[in-house]
């Protein structure tokens, strides 16, 4: 059903720490690996070894440069995947009911056997989180690794999304936003998590933690005064000391 649930029992989602992300793209690769080898249609590549390679990805890492009013610019790596919006426009536009938001945990999914590949849901998503697979003709999107997080065949520590499990920097966190004491709720509160494009009214569940301010260059000079030569033209004992030390 493409009507959105009024409320979901849990609100599973990600917190992505823009301060910690090093832009290594490991999450992109592990996401593609898990999701192409497991549930649903594979994520195809066209012309993978040719001149114009292109492929379906559910998670992509952008890089932005932020230039403050004064001081050095800051580079921010920016992973982007489905934000599992509470007010998901991609769900309500779907004519077939293939797109839906789960009442139990708020995950937004596509039932691939119902999808006609009209692409309208990708048009409705402001974040570019949905991609129509070029070979399969069905809509692909992040499932929050629904086939890992509840999978009792996996060891406990692997029951989280592949991107979170793989991130070497620990920049991705998975949890339940409906629980105010969960890891993600606390991180979001403490670090002032951001909504992407709030003016679009999608009420995204995933939050982004803003990068911390870079050290100001002025502070680097704190020790500088102590490094300056104390006396230019030393006399007497100091001159002798200076000369003697210079020899070594």
């Amino acid at each position: 059903m493409t009507s959105l649930p009024k409320q979901t029992d849990r609100k599973l989602g990600l917190v992505i720490d823009l301060d910690t992300c090093v832009g290594c793209h490991a999450c992109v690769i592990s996401c593609k690996g898990w999701n192409t080898e497991n549930y649903g249609a594979a994520l195809s590549d066209t012309d993978p070894y040719g001149a114009e390679p292109s492929g379906t990805f559910l998670n992509r890492v952008h890089s932005y440069e932020v230039q403050p009013a004064s001081g050095a610019a800051q580079l921010v790596h920016f992973p982007k995947s489905c934000l599992h919006c509470d007010n998901a426009p991609c769900v309500t536009v779907c004519p077939t009911g293939a797109s839906y938001k789960r009442v139990e945990d708020g995950i937004v999914l596509v039932n691939e056997s119902d999808c006609i590949g009209c692409g309208l849901c990708a048009w409705a998503c402001p974040y570019g989180a949905r991609e129509l697979d070029a070979l399969e003709g069905v809509m692909k999107k992040c499932t929050l690794c629904v086939d890992r997080i509840y999978n009792e065949n996996l060891p406990e520590e692997d029951r989280e999304p592949a991107c979170v499990r793989t991130c070497p920097a620990g920049a991705r966190h998975f949890g339940d936003f409906a629980d105010p004491d969960s890891n993600v709720s606390r991180l979001n509160r403490d670090r002032g998590g951001i909504d992407l494009m709030p003016e679009q009214g999608t009420k995204p569940v995933n939050k982004y933690l803003p990068p911390r301010r870079k050290d100001q260059t002025a502070e680097i000079d704190v020790l500088a005064p102590f490094l300056e030569p104390v006396a230019e033209d030393a006399k007497g004992f100091m001159a002798w000391l200076d000369k003697t030390l210079e020899k070594f």
């Binding site: 823009l18 793209h25 992109v28 114009e52 390679p53 292109s54 492929g55 379906t56 990805f57 992509r60 890492v61 952008h62 890089s63 932005y64 440069e65 932020v66 230039q67 403050p68 009013a69 610019a73 800051q74 580079l75 921010v76 920016f78 982007k80 990708a122 402001p126 570019g128 991609e131 129509l132 070029a134 951001i194 909504d195 992407l196 494009m197 709030p198 003016e199 679009q200 982004y208 803003p210 990068p211 301010r213």
Partner: peptide
């Protein structure tokens, strides 16, 4: 409508945001 790179990334509060590197060298569905 008020969307720009600043609201899209939420980074506008820190300065002027510029797209530095796309996620891939090639093109994509989007």
């Amino acid at each position: 409508a008020g969307s720009d790179l600043s609201t899209a990334t939420g980074l506008g509060r820190f300065g002027t945001v510029r797209a530095f590197e796309p996620p891939h060298t090639g093109t994509n569905y989007l």
